[in-house]
Amino acid sequence: MASQGTKRSYEQMETDGERQNATEIRASVGKMIDGIGRFYIQMCTELKLSDYEGRLIQNSLTIERMVLSAFDERRNKYLEEHPSAGKDPKKTGGPIYKRVDRKWMRELVLYDKEEIRRIWRQANNGDDATAGLTHMMIWHSNLNDTTYQRTRALVRTGMDPRMCSLMQGSTLPRRSGAAGAAVKGVGTMVMELIRMIKRGINDRNFWRGENGRKTRSAYERMCNILKGKFQTAAQRAMMDQVRESRNPGNAEIEDLIFLARSALILRGSVAHKSCLPACVYGPAVASGYDFEKEGYSLVGIDPFKLLQNSQVYSLIRPNENPAHKSQLVWMACNSAAFEDLRVLSFIRGTKVSPRGKLSTRGVQIASNENMDAMESSTLELRSRYWAIRTRSGGNTNQQRASAGQISVQPAFSVQRNLPFDKPTIMAAFTGNTEGRTSDMRAEIIRMMEGAKPEEMSFQGRGVFELSDERAANPIVPSFDMSNEGSYFFGDNAEEYDN
């Protein structure tokens, strides 16, 4: 993207840094990872977990959730003011799984939030270390993106479920800051804005008074975040219109849905970061690795190297396929839920299948599930090659597409044709070009129609051997075009429920 120079890199967003050079960025990201790792080690000690239990991804998720809940100030305040039966607002906890007599047992633990905050700050040299908290939120978000298709949420806001490739980060909490905003897809931002506008339509006082002023500035800020994701002048001009509207209503909703559809071809720039579970960072720190000293990046080879040398386990339900569970977590670790499966298959070195073909449910185990038949197995999170994460949407291309997802959002900077089903997408653009945004709409449609099938995206960008740390010898991959490109292809993934 041309304006790259004016933006802070995501590592800076990730670490609240002012302008830093590459070495400083690597050190501050490393410091953040160190903090998460030290916190995780301490929690495993508190909970008396064995090494194996500490490497269980379900335990990692519970521990991450506990610290996120302990620092969720708004919710904590709300819980104190609106006490609900049987919930102690000062405590947080969740299921911890232990191996007892050759069987997995679930144990519900409860801790004072104050105590968890103390352990977290102690692991982070006394700081609140917001960057580390956001990092864990993005890992949870990436896992949700890989596990669930947001059909219901899309339909509720009037969008087409086939636009799911635009929904990265749709389950990120509001408090995820600049680093969170960077990884949100165009569809996620559109959905947040539509929800806001709908509230304004239904509630006369939404934009009024002292609160209304705050609401208005939040609305304009979200519009600017979305505008910054678009790469064409016409899309940005249309966002200006939406932002400046005196009284946002149905016309703005129409414009936003139009823009979301246009992003299936004229893709937005959305950041991709490899955020790993805390149970990967903990053992690495415990083994003596100093992330701050060595430096770390979320968008280069580092996460690949770390996963190459990590042992992570997962509980497996009786009829689940461990290899499929591994694929789910591998995609989440690489922030690749909406990437082209052919690119992923090449990088991973084994075939990556669409969601609907995987015999696996989510990673988390519900409290009512029976533990008797639970097994555990090693997650295979290694890769054959590594590639640089991208934040450009890439230019655009036609490809055989599917009944489910009709476009992709690249996660890796790797040369390819970008699949999208042009006739299906263009069919949504018939007729409606009147109104105050008509010239911009016409211009956007013209650009979409001009998108050429034979153009290559990320020209000359390749993948790298894991021994090639400096990215000196790019390998331009070859793809098996007979395979499906979309992950949520004609899909039956479970729906995400809060």
Rank of each mutant, 00 (worst) to 15 (best):
A471C: 05
T424C: 08
S310H: 12
M167A: 05
A387T: 11
I197P: 02
S353V: 11
A442K: 01
A251I: 14
G288T: 03
F71Q: 11
A373Q: 02
N368Y: 02
T360Q: 05
R246T: 10
E244V: 14
E81Q: 02
E292V: 06
Q409L: 00
Y148D: 08
F206K: 11
T424A: 14
Y281H: 07
S367N: 15
R261E: 10
M196W: 03
P303I: 06
T62N: 15
Y10W: 00
Y97G: 11
G200P: 05
S353H: 03
Y40R: 14
D439H: 11
Q327P: 11
P283G: 15
I116L: 06
F479Y: 12
K184E: 04
A286I: 03
S60Q: 09
L47S: 09
G86M: 01
D340L: 07
L79Y: 10
R65Q: 09
S310C: 15
E11H: 03
V299F: 01
A427V: 04
G93N: 04
S478A: 00
N397W: 13
L307S: 05
S141K: 06
Q241C: 04
N319P: 02
S176P: 01
V312M: 15
E210T: 10
E469G: 11
M191K: 07
A237Q: 13
I194G: 00
A428S: 12
D468M: 03
E339T: 04
E254M: 12
G5M: 02
A337L: 06
S269W: 10
G362F: 06
K98H: 13
R361Y: 06
L379A: 02
L193H: 00
K422R: 15
R117I: 11
Q231V: 10
T23G: 10
G268S: 15
G212L: 12
M159D: 09
L341M: 11
G86V: 00
M239V: 15
S478D: 00
K227W: 09
E18M: 00
S383C: 12
T151V: 07
S262K: 01
R391N: 05
R243F: 11
S367G: 12
F429E: 02
N124R: 04
T45S: 15
T396A: 15
V67G: 11
P477T: 08
I25K: 13
R355I: 10
E254K: 14
E11C: 12
R267D: 02
A70D: 14
T424H: 12
S165Y: 03
C275W: 03
Q12C: 10
L110P: 13
A129C: 10
